[in-house]
Amino acid sequence: MNKLLLPALLSVLLAACSSTGTDATGAKVEDRTGAGAGVATVTAPGMSGTGIAALTDPNNILSKRSVFFDYDSFIIKAEAKPLIEAHARFLVQNPQMKVLVQGNTDERGSREYNLALGQKRADSVRQALSLLGAKEVQIESVSLGEEKPRCTDASEACYAENRRSDILYSGEF
């Protein structure tokens, strides 16, 4: 499976490298509102306005968090590459940010085996983000197996919706 994944990712990786260079964390934030009482408010890393807003701005690809998979497959499809690339770039530019990648499966079969299958889907996304420059410490891949279905009908459309990895940032899980 990795053999199929790697050439595709390398091209994405090159694209990602060429597009870095701007500092998305922006200017340092200084908050003086507490100065009168002799207390300086320090804003911790990760609260950078541009970064957080981008993650939830519906017009920004970073607000898209789900990567979908084919039945019994762990290969990231071409349609998901821009999304993965954007998140990888964001993680490279914001090394203080961390993500939890949650893998999911449809409901058929053993819960524990599905948990292991969901882990494979989460690992595919983790490996892709990692190949694109995100650091190991920034990413944890876990599985929810079949336990947290987004869609609960016993239909093929629903199963497809549930064969998914979600990317969650610190504070979102």
Partner: peptide
């Protein structure tokens, strides 16, 4: 048992 209360197993 396995609990997902911390958003992971």
């Amino acid at each position: 048992y396995v609990s997902f209360e911390a958003k992971k197993p």
